Computed example of a mutant assay.
Amino acid sequence: MNICLSPGGGSVYDSPAWSGRLLVGTQGGVVELEELSDSWREVGRGLTEHHVCALIAEPVSGNYYAGTHDAGVFVSPDGRHWQPASKGLEHSNVFSMTSVRRLDGKVRLYAGTEPAALFESRDFGESWQRLTGLEATTGREGWMFPAPPFVAHIKQIVVDPQDANAIYICVEQGGLYSSRDAGQTWIEHTAGMPNDAHRVLLHPTRSGRLFLANGFFFNRSDDGGKTWFEMKEQTRKIGYADPLVYHPRRPETMFVSGAFATPDTWVKGSADVSIARSRDGGDSWQYARGGLPAEIRPSVEAMCLEAMGDACRVFIGNTDGEVWMTQDEGEQWRRIGAGMPPVSKCFHADLINGKLDLTEVRIPDEIRALMEQMVQRPA
Rank of each mutant, 00 (worst) to 15 (best):
Y240E: 05
D350V: 04
I296L: 07
P342Q: 02
A276I: 09
A311G: 06
P243L: 00
K268W: 09
V323E: 00
D328G: 04
L351G: 02
R250N: 06
K237T: 04
W266R: 06
A241I: 01
M325V: 15
V273D: 01
G330T: 07
L356M: 14
K237A: 08
D357T: 15
R236L: 10
L292N: 14
D365E: 14
A271N: 03
E301G: 02
T319S: 06
A369Y: 08
P243C: 01
K355N: 14
S278M: 04
G239R: 03
T359A: 13
G239V: 11
A261N: 10
W285R: 08
V343L: 01
I238S: 03
T265D: 11
F347S: 11
K345H: 03
R335I: 03
G281K: 09
L351M: 12
C346Y: 14
D280C: 10
A369K: 12
V323K: 00
S274M: 07
A349W: 12
A338S: 13
A349M: 06
W324Q: 10
D310H: 10
Q327A: 14
Q332A: 09
E295V: 15
R334C: 08
R334S: 13
P364M: 09
A349R: 05
P342R: 02
K355T: 02
L358C: 05
L244C: 08
E329M: 09
M325F: 03
T262E: 09
A349T: 05
D357V: 15
A271Y: 11
T359N: 15
G290C: 08
G282R: 05
D328L: 04
P342G: 04
Q286S: 13
V267T: 15
T326W: 04
R250W: 00
D280M: 07
G317E: 00
W285I: 05
A241M: 01
L244E: 02
R289I: 13
E322R: 09
L244H: 03
V256N: 04
A369F: 04
V300Q: 03
D264T: 14
A307V: 01
T265V: 09
N353T: 14
Y246K: 02
P263L: 10
F255M: 06
T253Q: 08
T326C: 07
K345P: 03
D357I: 12
V323H: 00
T265R: 14
D350I: 02
R279P: 01
A294K: 10
R335Q: 15
R250P: 00
G330A: 08
Y287N: 06
R250L: 08
N318M: 09
G321R: 05
M254C: 04
D272E: 15
Q286K: 11
A302Q: 01
R313N: 04
P248K: 00
A338F: 06
S270D: 06
E329Q: 09
W285K: 07
A369W: 11
G269K: 06
M340P: 05
E366I: 04
P251T: 05
K232H: 12
M254T: 01
E252P: 00
